[in-house]
Nucleic acid binder design. Structure first.
Lengths: 234, 234
DNA sequence: AACATAGATATTGTTGAACAATCCAACAAG
DNA sequence: CTTGTTGGATTGTTCAACAATATCTATGTT
């Protein structure tokens, strides 16, 4: 085997490394809890008792505590000393701050569409389409998920792994808010058409136009969300 | 006592809350390790053995592992399954990504100087001055610290707690790079004058000017850092 | 009835020991 | 010089224990 092709082989194997990565029990527990929180099984304010959850999942208290630490750091859980961990409850101020971050990051990211990795644009299109399909099926929860993916894809345009990771967290936090509202349709359906329009502007290379429309989206979504949320948290 | 001043008192007490908050052993351990890493006692690639560190600090392995989880999540430690935790080693790609984030966030934040909280502008000025003082004392490490605080203050202009938190982490990661370089003067002194200039432009309300100069700073710092770093990590 | 107090109880915080799983280095065999 | 094998070291995970803290309950007071 010639040396060049050896290098090619090892290169491709290195890319496979992520596939075979085993994970610790702690990480798997964290993943499960994260899913249950973002899907709404555990709701904001719920207390997660170590012994109850530990025996339910069949893991020891120590392992569970490590998982709790991870999720607290992600702001999904709220660890109060000597009192236990609770599913995070966002204040209105938190929602405002989350949208400040979104506006800053997303609006800047969308201006980088021309230099964006190809995958990002593809994800953008896929998100728009899967949202529209979900809407024709009246699957409003799926519409919400697609909407999240749309905005995640917007951030991908900036081409920074750390920014994507940060946005994953920001959107996960926002899910905590969505779940205390009972009507996902109201909060997601109106934005389907707008996502399609934004995509068009991006593909046309209209930086100012796409940013303006995205900014308008965020402002309106924030107003709607804060309005409904401030009534509930009183 | 009139009601207004009662509110003022409680307000100030609420601000004191962070001072008296007790902390768990885990968090204190994490804080110590974080300091030792950012100050350079532990260097990138160093392995942190559970038993060694645990007995040295007088805490149990379980507690220490929780602290390790926190710092791994902050990207200061690298937790490899069954192999142990190591002080994170940044690749050149990591450095590039970090600067991508910085450029995006800082350049956008500095445009918000007009609506920024008063404290942010004050921090900006203080950082410039303490950097200049440190330079006259030839305290080059302190110059570096002041430089970090300058950029942290730039992010504060955006007025988002989450963004500040994110930037704290980004800058902590960058410290990992600075510590493998041996000459802090080379990497920080040239930017003292520039920070002063940027501050002037901000105070003059020149959004485009301050952004341009900050962007230029970041581009040059990145080039310098990547150039020196890619020689070392080979 | 509202309130304070003091136990009693449950839960978290932290430890230490134990054992299985895994890695790593050194050595042996082909 | 590569491929098994073996032994020691370290991590992954569990368990049981106890101290520290919070929460609940009952009791007594005004």
């Amino acid at each position: 085997m010639p040396p060049e092709s050896v290098d090619a082989v090892t290169e491709s194997l290195i890319r496979d490394r992520s596939l075979l990565s085993r994970t610790s029990t702690t990480e798997r527990v964290a993943a499960i809890l994260r899913d249950r929180i973002t899907e709404g099984l555990f709701r904001p304010g719920d207390r997660l008792v170590e012994e109850t959850i530990g025996t339910a999942l069949g893991v020891s208290r120590n392992t569970l505590r490590e998982a709790f630490r991870l999720l607290s750091h992600e702001r999904l859980l709220d660890h109060r000393l000597n009192r236990g961990v609770f599913v995070r409850e966002l204040s209105v101020d938190d929602v405002v701050d989350l949208f400040r971050v979104r506006r800053l990051v997303e609006c800047t990211a969308i201006r980088h569409a021309d230099t964006a990795p190809a995958a990002a644009l593809r994800h953008l299109r896929e998100a728009v389409e899967s949202g529209e399909h979900a809407a024709t099926d009246h699957a409003w929860l799926a519409v919400g998920t697609a909407n999240m993916r749309f905005h995640q894809a917007v951030v991908e345009l900036a081409g920074s792994a750390r920014l994507e990771e940060m946005m994953r967290q920001v959107l996960a936090e926002l899910r905590l808010v969505f779940h205390v509202m009972n009507d996902p349709r109201t909060f997601h359906e109106p934005y389907l058409a707008r996502n399609r329009d934004i995509l068009k502007l991006v593909e046309a290379g209209d930086r100012d136009g796409s940013e303006a429309m995205l900014s308008g989206y965020l402002t309106e979504a924030e107003r709607q969300l804060v309005g409904a949320y401030s009534l509930l948290t009183r």
